[in-house]
Design a binder for these strands. Structure first.
Lengths: 340, 340
DNA sequence: TTGTACGCGTTATCAA
DNA sequence: TTGATAACGCGTACAA
């Protein structure tokens, strides 16, 4: 450890003394400058600059009823889907006086409930949570949060407060319909993790099959293990062994799709002729792949940015009426599903 | 916003009253229980449980000289290399009473300096920063931090405090040597972003070429743009147009390698015969690709976990002597570089 | 427009 | 082993 230098950080007191005003005035220039005279304001600003004053967030949080923290609870650290969301969140928070506090639930509702409790304890400026599958207790906490709460990644009725996302059911169903539109008749399904959002995609897939009058047979391969490219290869291998009639697959994410594509190539299956492949999320690599892979574009960065904006708007009282922002999705067709 | 319910959170005072002791005793049971009698300790524990008391981190930080926050400063949100590091960090922090505060510098040293200042203001329990290329001012701040400071991702002399990582120069040089060992004679280099760590990889590449007595020619393609799979394709296309004699490539990360592989396939270059490909980091997909892609394995999760552990050890005074932990790297050979 | 003075929930110092 | 009590740095009535 470095030597604990007596590094008395400069406080508001120092700034006040330096200018010759009271701490209250300094505090006011920081929070609502409009009630402070221009002259004093300038002098304080100069003093803050020259002394290098930085407010103490702990003291601020303690003295006021709110902290500057925006709490964010996501299910997973490593899933790059959430990396994009975080990118949006951080870029929207940048330049505000807010800071982000991140928590990972590891897809466990009870962890999530705990995190919510801990975060709420800090009287956060706002809270961003993922999805709609909270425990009863967590739901109660969120309804009484006393701060703006935004649910991201999904839409659904009965938001606790506000919501920004899209329908996973609709998106998956549209992707499946796309496969049919391209002439595929015996599509399969590859799924990993099988968390609630993934389940809803499976429902969409199944309902579209039903609507098309097609039996699903044994063409649904899922696992609760975490998704990966390797797993995509394994799942496709299993699927083709069990149900060789499969002529296309819908994968619940792009990693699986990529892995499936590699496995298809290993098996000398021609894409898209022998096998159509559609991913989900439309990560950057899908366009670069050979052949390029169709996917369902989702607006992850926008969800992150939008969620923060919703909180800021709530805080400033300029929030819109609509409780739910549906960002939709977009089927991006590429070579991997060009008919046959 | 939800209605601001009068949700008076339960404080230490409540717990104390409930048990019939002073707040001081409650505080002690939480921080050093060994000085409190077992009987009182049990009653307090019960009260905490039944009242659902959670300590207020702001009050704690204000009253003590340290907060429970471990500050982490990374260059990028979206780079999945750091997702793995974060995974390690969070899993090591879990179960401790610490929390993580994350900041992104966007590869800008001045942003980083600012973040360091802001984080230091919170008297963090520890600080984790990326690499060794801080500004002069940031270096001074970190040396006087008054808390454990760990630099991750790299090794190098003169750590501010402690360091855990590996030598990017050595790793890149070893990868290049591997290409030569496999019989390639005119290897090229694909680089994106070209931040200092990437630059050091380029140096390793160049020095190995020199050691092998091989001219680099025009086989070094770099850009300051952010890395992506698509960019890997573009860079390889450029490279092969300018320097068609290239018989292998070392890519500064796996995204570029994957993109390069796709582009090679588009150009009907046989891998590994016409073109050897080696990536960097050994992300999961490299093993699943078709053909599988050689890479340099780095221990990202371990860096995150290790960094937190170093901080915890420093805090508890159980830290080892060595200031620098070198996690090394590992050349993982796969089909993409099987000689020719 | 500015200053005074109290309180936020906890830690830490000192006595008891 | 326990209890008062003074900080910690800032926000905010209330007064001036």
């Amino acid at each position: 450890m470095n030597k604990n230098k007596e590094t008395k950080s400069v406080t508001m007191r120092d700034v006040a003394d330096h200018v010759g005003v009271s701490v209250a005035t300094v505090s006011r220039t920081l929070r609502n400058p409009e009630v402070v005279s221009q002259a004093v304001r300038d002098k304080i600003a100069a003093a803050i600059e020259s002394l290098g004053y930085l407010p103490d967030p702990a003291a601020r949080a303690l003295a006021s009823t709110r902290s500057d923290i925006i709490g964010v609870i996501l299910p997973s650290v490593s899933n790059n889907v959430f990396a994009d969301v975080m990118d949006g969140i951080y870029s929207a928070v940048e330049g505000t006086h807010h800071s982000v506090q991140l928590g990972y639930s590891r897809y466990a509702p009870l962890s999530e409930e705990n995190l919510i409790r801990v975060f709420l304890r800090q009287r956060p400026a706002g809270l961003i949570v993922t999805g709609i599958d909270q425990t009863e207790a967590a739901q109660a906490l969120l309804r009484e949060a006393g701060c703006p709460v935004v649910q991201i990644m999904e839409t659904g009725d009965a938001p606790y407060d506000r919501m920004i996302g899209f329908s996973h059911y609709d998106a998956a169903r549209a992707a499946t319909a796309h496969l049919f539109a391209q002439g595929y008749r015996r599509p399969g399904f590859l799924g990993a993790r099988m968390d609630p959002r993934t389940q809803r995609r499976l429902h969409g897939f199944r309902d579209e099959l039903r609507a098309q009058g097609v039996e699903e047979g044994k063409r649904i391969q899922t696992t609760t293990r975490a998704s990966s490219v390797t797993l995509g290869s394994h799942l496709l291998a299993q699927l083709m062994d069990i149900a060789p009639e499969t002529d296309a697959i819908f994968c619940i994410n792009d990693d699986l799709a990529l892995g499936a594509m590699f496995e298809a190539q290993r098996r000398n299956l021609r894409i898209p002729d022998d096998l159509g492949i559609c991913g989900f999320n439309d990560m950057e690599m899908m366009a670069a792949a050979e052949p390029s892979i169709s996917s369902v574009r989702t607006f992850r960065r926008e969800m992150g940015e939008g969620a923060v904006q919703l909180i800021l708007d709530s805080l400033s009282g300029t929030a819109a009426q609509e409780k739910i922002v549906d960002l939709g999705y977009q089927i991006v067709q590429r070579r991997s599903t060009r008919g046959h």
